[in-house]
Structure formats: C-alpha cells, structure tokens
C-alpha cells in the first residue's frame, strides 16, 4: 500500500515540480505559486488557473477551476465517514481529498482499511505535490517536461488499476463505462470539468434497467475499464486464470 502510494507520489512530485516551473515562467510570484499548491491543492485547476491568469482572465480562472473541482462534492458524499469520526478529521481530510486519494480509499473495503488508505494517500500525496511545487519554483526552467518521462500516462493508468476491482460489479461496470464514454465524447465540445460531471448521468442506466439485479458474482470476471470497450475478452479471461 505504502509502495503503491509512493509510486503515484513520485509522479506527483515531478508534475508538481513542473507546475512550479510553469507558474513561475508564466509570471506568477513564487509565494502565489506555493500558496496555490498548499491551499487550492488541485493539480488540474492550478494548471488551468495559471494559464488563464497569464492570459489576463482571472474571473475565468476561478470559474473554470471551480467547475473542474465540482466533482469533489460527490467524492466527499461517497467517502463521508471514511475520513474518521472526529470533526477535525473530516475538516482536515476534506482538504486532502484528491482523485488519487479517493481512488486509493475506495479500492479498500469500507471501515478501518478505507480510512487508513485515505489518510496515507492523502498526507503523502499532499506532501509530494507541495514539495514538487517548491522544487519547481526553485529550479525554474531546469525542471524537465514531465511528458518526456511519460508521466501523463502514469495517472490514468494508476486510476484504472485502482478501479478494476470495483468494476467487477456488473452495475458499476456499465455505469462507469458509459460515463467514461460520455465524458470522452463530450470533451471536445464542453468546457473542462463538465464532461467528467456528465459521467454521473450514466447512473440513469440503473433506473432504466429497473430493479432487475443480477445475482451476486454473476459475470464478475470480465471487468472492462473505461477506455477500451472492444478489448478481446478471451485474452482477459486467460489473464484472470493465470492468477
């Protein structure tokens, strides 16, 4: 678990460094760059905001960033008590809630394991992102482009790996795949953030299908994560069997 979080943490350190370097290069003062990583703490919104601030549209930076982050509300609703029972844990934990921390937590069974996973991922990733930002601010242009290291592929791959077990449930799989498809198809035409929120609309599938529930464990061995609906099933069954 620690090793898994550390892998994503290393990627976040590097992307955080690139954020620091990009923000400073775009003319943001060092204090503002560091403050953003510490108190906004949302990578996508930060990159977007720096771009829009540099382009002279601060109002758009706020709107676009908030639209992008609206997905955290349903995340919080789902995680809820998994942050801990004390109030300070809920309030502090809320700030540490990122896509990755949410994915690590939801990959664990509810209760203590989920709470531990959330806090481990939450704290480590927060430290990694902010340490990375500091490195980027200090190193400036000396920080390389993270795409050279393929880090832009690391995050979706990590999310998919964390999601796979959940997708064994048939209803979840259909809703998640449909939602992912909706988001990808609408990305070219909708403002950033909306396509991902639109994925929630796929929950309507469950209403259309009515109360007809498959028996537990039915067809549970062919999870199909997100992007590749045309994956040849037999190969994957072989993969399952090899375990």
């Amino acid at each position: 678990m620690l090793r898994d979080v550390a892998a994503i943490g290393a990627a976040m350190l590097a992307v955080g460094a690139s954020f620091g370097a990009v923000a400073v290069a775009a003319g943001l003062p060092a204090w503002a760059t560091l403050a953003m990583s510490a108190i906004v703490y949302a990578g996508g919104a930060q990159f977007m905001a720096v771009g829009l601030i540099a382009a002279g549209s601060p109002f758009a930076a706020v709107l676009a960033g908030l639209l992008l982050n609206a997905r955290h509300l349903p995340f919080g609703l789902t995680l809820g008590g998994s942050l801990g029972s004390q109030r300070w844990r809920r309030l502090l934990g809320s700030h540490l809630m990122t896509d990755e921390a949410t994915a690590f937590a939801l990959a664990q069974p509810a209760g203590d394991p989920r709470r531990r996973a959330f806090w481990l991922a939450g704290v480590l990733l927060f430290l990694a992102w902010n340490a990375g930002t500091l490195l980027g601010v200090l190193a400036g242009g000396a920080v390389g482009d993270p795409t050279v290291l393929g880090l832009d592929a690391a995050f979706p791959a990590g999310l998919i790996a964390l999601l796979l077990p959940v997708l064994r449930d048939r209803d979840t799989r259909w809703v998640a795949l449909t939602g992912a498809g909706l988001a990808v198809v609408t990305t070219p035409v909708l403002p950033a953030g909306l396509p991902v929120l639109l994925a929630l609309g796929a929950l309507a599938l469950l209403l259309v299908r009515g109360r007809r529930r498959p028996p537990p464990g039915d067809d549970g061995l062919t999870p199909d994560p997100g992007t590749r609906q045309d994956e040849p099933t037999p190969v994957l069954r072989a993969g399952e069997a090899s375990c």
Partner: peptide, 10 residues
C-alpha cells in the same frame, strides 16, 4: 466509480 472512470478515460 463513474467519475473516476471518466477522469481516467479523458
């Protein structure tokens, strides 16, 4: 899960 799948896919 749908939100995370949509994030991963996009």
């Amino acid at each position: 899960a749908a939100l995370l799948a949509a994030l991963a896919a996009t």
